[in-house]
Every structure is written in C-alpha cells, then in structure tokens.
C-alpha cells in the first residue's frame, strides 16, 4: 500500500441471504483506488456495481474481506462511526438527486454541515461558497421544484462537496438528465477531479464513463477489466 492509496479492498465478498437462497454479489474483490483518481465502475445490471459502490461508500458492509480507508480498516466499525466517516470524508451524488422538497438550495447544501455540528453562520458561509463554486450563486434561495434537473444535480454535487470530502461517489448521476445537462454535469465532475477530488462514478453508459481516467468493469461480481485511459476527453 502506497501513501497515496485512499481505498483498498482485500478479498472482499458480499452475499445476500443464506443457505440455498444465498446470492453472491461480489466475489473475492481486490481493488486499490489512489487519491486523485477518477474511476468509473461499469457493468451490466446485476453485475454488482451498485453494491460495490454502497460498500465503498460505507452504506453497506461486506460479508467478509477487508476495507481500508486511507490505511484504516473500516468494515467492522460501528454504525455511528460509519455515519461520521460518511459525513466527514465522503460525498454522495445520486441518480434521483435526493434533495429535500420545499427546502431551498442553500438549506439542502447545509444539511451535511448540520450533522457535522457546524454553527449556523459558518454553515451559511460554506454552503454559499460551494454553491458559487458550482455556478449556482443566483439560485441559492430556490426550492428544488423551481430548478431544472441539471441545476438540481448541481445542488446535490454542492451538498456532496460542502464537507470537503476526500472522495466523492456518484451513482448514475446523469441517469435522470438529458444529453446536454449530462455533459455539463460530467464537466463538473471532471473539473472537481482536476481540482484534486477523488471521484468514483457508477454508470452503464460508455460516453459518461469516458470522462473517467480509469474504468473498472464488473461482471457477476468479479472485475473483468481494469484499464487506465490515457486519452481522457
């Protein structure tokens, strides 16, 4: 393990159910992700890519095997400890945005800071800064219903970034967007990566995955290809 290794999975298995109904979703996975990488996880449905992302994002636990985050083993931590790690070191962007309805963009972005125990005035400052950075300074007081899909996903990205995470997970972030907005959102991720954020993207679309510097392909719970791309768009 080098100093730049952020995520390390060792012999990781995930299965659901027991006995005859046991379904193995991930089989003996070994994986390293370094700081500053932009990784796309691809695969057909049922390949285990979402499960992998949930485990990487500490939303789910492996059945066995080890998960090291920046050198520390995290797969057997308590639920509260995992919540803290998600809050402090990870950011999440989902396909369906998952913004709180009837709540302004600013307040949506402030949400992770509330759970981090940050004071109201600092929350406001930091959330405003991130929204400005993402190009939504003029929209901070709008509720999600007053925003376009692309804008909503930008708010979600701002929310993922506001705690200054080491790694950002994006689960099909363009799945609910049209082509133009999809490309814009991917440009945002690309820029974040250039600014030093580690980004892990789950997608089944090749042109979306082509924004990443590394593509990991899964099939039936096994890595079938892991390629570094030189010619990033």
């Amino acid at each position: 393990m080098t100093a730049t290794t952020l995520v390390k999975l060792a012999d990781l298995n995930k299965s659901y159910g027991t006995g005859s109904t046991e379904t193995k979703v991930l089989r003996g996975l070994n994986l390293n992700i370094d700081r500053g990488e932009f990784v796309a996880i691809m695969g057909p449905s049922g390949s285990g890519k979402s499960t992998l992302m949930h485990i990487l994002g500490l939303l789910d636990r492996p059945t066995d095997g080890a998960y090291y985050l920046a050198g520390d083993r995290v797969d057997s931590l308590s639920e509260d400890a995992l919540a803290s790690l998600r809050n402090q070191r990870m950011g999440f962007v989902f396909q369906s945005f998952n913004l709180l309805p009837r709540t302004s963009a600013l307040e949506n972005v402030e949400l992770p800071l509330i759970y981090a125990g940050i004071s109201a005035s600092e929350r406001r400052t930091r959330a405003t800064q991130v929204l400005e950075r993402i190009g939504l300074a003029h929209r901070i007081h709008n509720a999600p219903s007053q925003l376009s899909g692309g804008e909503q996903q930008r708010v979600a990205i701002a929310r993922a970034l506001v705690c200054n995470p080491e790694i950002v997970f994006a689960d099909e972030p363009t799945g609910n967007l049209d082509t133009k907005n999809s490309l814009e959102i991917m440009e945002v991720f690309k820029r974040l990566n250039q600014e030093g954020h580690t980004v892990v993207l789950v997608t089944h679309e090749d042109d979306i995955a082509s924004f990443a510097k590394r593509i990991i392909r899964l099939k039936d719970g096994v890595v079938v290809a892991d390629e570094l791309r030189g010619d990033v768009q």
């Binding site: 919540a83 998600r86 999440f92 989902f94 998952n98 949400l111 759970y115």
Partner: peptide, 9 residues
Amino acid sequence: LRKAIGAKR
C-alpha cells in the same frame, strides 16, 4: 439521504 450524508441513528 440523511443517513448517507452523516446522520446517526
């Protein structure tokens, strides 16, 4: 979502 972004039980 709240749990994902860090809310404890």
